[in-house]
Simulated assay, not measured.
Amino acid sequence: MVPSAYVHIPFCDSICAYCDFVRIQKNEQFFSSWKDTLIQEIKEYKIENLHTLYFGGGTPSLLDVEDFISIRNCFPDSIDEFTVECNPESLDKDKLDAYVSLGVNRISLGVQSFKDDLLKICNRKHTSDQAKTVIQMIQSSGIHNFSIDLIFGLPNQTMEDVKKDIDTFLNLDIPHLSIYSLQIEENSIFGKTGVEPIDSDLEADMFEYITKTLEAAGYIHYEISSFCKPGYYSKHNLAYWQDKDFYGFGCGASGRIDGIRYDNTTSLKEYCVKGPQAIYISETLAERGMDAIMMALRTKFGLNIKEWNLKYQNDFKNHYATVLDKYHEYFLYDSDRVFLNDAGLEILNTILVDFMMIE
């Protein structure tokens, strides 16, 4: 059984300055055809059981309740974790009540910053006060498992700004945080307008402050960009990080079935006319094993060596002995598991480059 499904909703009211995901401003010309194609794509799999379901985007909360219901009804009634990504300006009480009645039990809210001038730089359409109001609305809705997104390393952002964002987050008593350093993507507005990354030392100082402050407040740093109170892990994202299969539905979605990854077309017009047009990614068993290592080492749970050896027909400790020895002060072992300490997570990309150099 494939345990998880991701549904990509590509529509947005506006385009954020940092975003390079597959997204388009909501277009009524294509919307009806897109919805019909998406429903047909999902129904072809006749899914009877599902552990996690995630509506991402784009902005899923842009959907009218009727459209949301028609897509949601393609999936089983009982789902352990059902997450919907929302923006503060497109989520109201009626829509939230409808989500609850339809089995949504987790919200991921795109806040990005609690500072209005930084929100404007990012081309976000909500204010800090709006975000706080929506967070309180979620807390009153019966959805106790929710997350917000924040970004650090934004243009003109100072260390004091980061401290205020983290302080606001803690005061709001939110159970989960996904926090990312700004990446200047070539096809984003930032990339096209020549925005430069902040000083790397300042970025490192920001991340160190975020990590230490949240851990001191009782949050678990369970993945390089993810913090949660005990018991509030994102089960859906853990499926990615723990080498599980997942369906990917919709224009611009990616999935993995029987260990083989695929990408749907990113062209909305092509998707509406021809369907998902999935391109399957050809990988050797060794390449798939490397993917599993890259994902697992992002998390505090690390890699199950025994399972990896069996699945990928190799001996992890022997095959990667030179890398494990080179970075020995960063690796920790617990029974059959290997994982990185906090200092190791800070240089994860450097370590992974060395892993990839081993044939």
Rank of each mutant, 00 (worst) to 15 (best):
Q112M: 03
K192D: 03
E346Q: 15
K317R: 15
L345M: 14
T213W: 04
I79Y: 03
D161P: 10
L150D: 04
D80Y: 15
E287S: 13
I69S: 15
D149H: 04
H126V: 04
M295N: 10
H144E: 13
L340E: 02
A239P: 07
L119T: 05
V22C: 08
T322L: 11
V273Q: 14
S254F: 10
P175W: 05
Y312C: 05
N27A: 04
I135N: 03
D167T: 13
S90R: 09
L332S: 06
N73P: 05
D36M: 14
L348G: 01
F249V: 03
I148T: 08
C86I: 12
D161M: 06
I42L: 05
E66F: 11
I143H: 00
Q40S: 13
K229I: 00
S234E: 09
Y333K: 09
H126M: 01
K300A: 12
I351R: 06
F190G: 00
E48Q: 14
E81W: 09
K192Y: 05
I42Y: 02
V100Y: 09
L53I: 05
Y45W: 12
F331S: 06
L50I: 06
V134A: 00
P60I: 07
V2H: 04
F339W: 10
A17E: 00
S4H: 10
F31H: 11
N156K: 14
P197W: 01
K125H: 11
T193S: 12
Q29M: 13
T133M: 12
D149K: 08
Y99S: 06
L202V: 13
T127W: 01
Y333D: 07
F68Y: 07
P197K: 06
M356F: 10
I305Q: 04
D336G: 10
A5G: 04
G252W: 00
R337T: 13
S90D: 12
K326W: 07
H51S: 15
I224S: 08
F68V: 00
D263G: 08
K164Y: 10
D263A: 13
F207V: 09
L38E: 09
K274M: 07
Q29E: 14
F21E: 01
S70I: 07
K35T: 08
D336Y: 11
Q40E: 15
I107C: 01
T350K: 14
L118A: 11
S14I: 09
F152E: 00
V22W: 06
L202E: 13
F31G: 01
D80M: 15
W34Q: 09
D199M: 09
L91R: 00
G344Y: 06
F246T: 07
K274L: 10
Q130H: 09
T83G: 08
K26M: 06
G302I: 03
V104P: 02
A292I: 11
E215P: 07
G142W: 08
